[in-house]
Simulated scan of single mutants.
Amino acid sequence: MTDKYVIARLEEKGHRFEVLVDPDLALKVKEGKSVNVDELLVGDFIYKDARKGLKASPESLREVFKTDDIKQITLEIVKRGEIQLTAEQRRRFAEEKRKQVINLIAKNAVDPKTKLPIPQKRIELALEQARVSIDPFKPAESQIEEIVSKISRVIPIKIAKAYVSVRVPSEYASRVHKLLAQMGEIKRQSWMNDGSLLMEIEIPAGMQQELFDRVNGVTKGSAQIKIISVG
C-alpha cells in the first residue's frame, strides 16, 4: 500500500468500516479542521475490509451512520475511528506536533519569577526531562495547559498575558494599529496632543520581544513601548 493514502477504521455495532484517505488531511480532520472531502477521500467506496477489497453493505452503513452519503460517512469514520499510519508517518506527525507545541508554549508562557519569555530550546529540554508525551492526533492548543503543568515540575513556567502600552508617531499609526490587532487584543487607544497614537494591548506573554521587534521595525525605532504588567 502506498504511503499516499492510509486506512481509517471504525468499529461500531458489530460492524467494521474502512475507508482510504489522505493521511495529512485525515490528521487535520482529527484536529477539528475543515478539509475538502474530495481531496481527503481516496476512491469511492466504504469497505468492511479495504485490503481484501470487501465493501460494506448499504444496510450496515444506514444502520450505523443513518445515511449512505460516502463523504459524510468518511468524515465520521475519520473523526471517530483510528487512522492506520505507518511508523514513518507516525514519527513525522509526532515531530510536527511537537514543534507546534513548543512554539505555542514559547508564545504563551513566561518564567513567573522574571516575567520573561522562555527560549524554545529550554522548553524542548524540559519536555524531555519531564518525559512528556504529545498526542499527534489532538490539536496542539488543547494540550498546552496539561503539558505546561507537567514541565513546571522541572522549570518555572506559567501561561500568562502581557499588557503593553505602545505610543507611535502619527505617520506610523495606521500600520502599527493593524500590526497590533493581529498580535493581540487592543484594549484602549487615544490620540495624544502631539498627534501620536497611544494604544494598550494584551498579548500572549511570550510574544513580548516579538512585539518590540516588529513595532520598532515599522517605526524605525521611534515607538515608545512599555510593559505595564505580566500575569
Rank of each mutant, 00 (worst) to 15 (best):
I7A: 07
K158Q: 11
V154G: 03
L20R: 14
K113E: 02
L25Y: 08
A56G: 00
A181K: 15
K115N: 08
A173K: 00
Q208E: 12
Y47A: 10
Q100L: 13
I123R: 01
Q72K: 15
A94Q: 14
I155R: 03
E76P: 06
A8D: 07
I134H: 08
I70L: 09
E202F: 05
V78G: 00
D22L: 13
G231M: 14
M1V: 13
H15C: 09
S165V: 09
F65P: 05
K79R: 15
M183D: 06
D44S: 10
Q189S: 10
R188S: 13
I73H: 04
R167V: 15
E59C: 01
G43V: 11
V35L: 12
I83N: 08
E39L: 15
L41T: 03
V64G: 02
N108E: 12
I186D: 01
K79W: 08
V230P: 05
A87W: 09
V148Q: 01
T86V: 06
F137T: 12
F93R: 00
N216Y: 10
E171G: 02
K121Q: 14
L41I: 10
K99E: 14
L10H: 08
A205R: 12
I123F: 03
G217N: 08
D69G: 12
N216Q: 07
N108C: 09
I157G: 00
Y172M: 01
V35M: 13
R98T: 10
L27K: 09
E185M: 11
F17M: 06
L40P: 04
A87C: 03
Q129P: 07
T114M: 11
I7W: 01
N193W: 08
L25W: 07
D111T: 06
S174I: 15
K178V: 11
M207T: 10
D111I: 04
Q182R: 15
L40A: 02
D111A: 03
V21E: 04
P136E: 10
N103H: 14
Y163T: 12
I227G: 03
S152A: 10
D22F: 10
I147W: 01
P139F: 13
R9W: 04
V148E: 04
E128T: 06
R122P: 04
A56L: 04
K150V: 07
V218C: 04
I123C: 05
L41H: 04
E200A: 00
D22R: 10
V148C: 07
R175Y: 13
L41Q: 02
L20H: 11
L197C: 02
L75P: 06
V78L: 05
R153M: 14
Q129K: 15
K66P: 04
R9S: 15
I225E: 06
I123N: 02
E59W: 00
Q143L: 07
D135P: 05
V6W: 06
N36V: 12
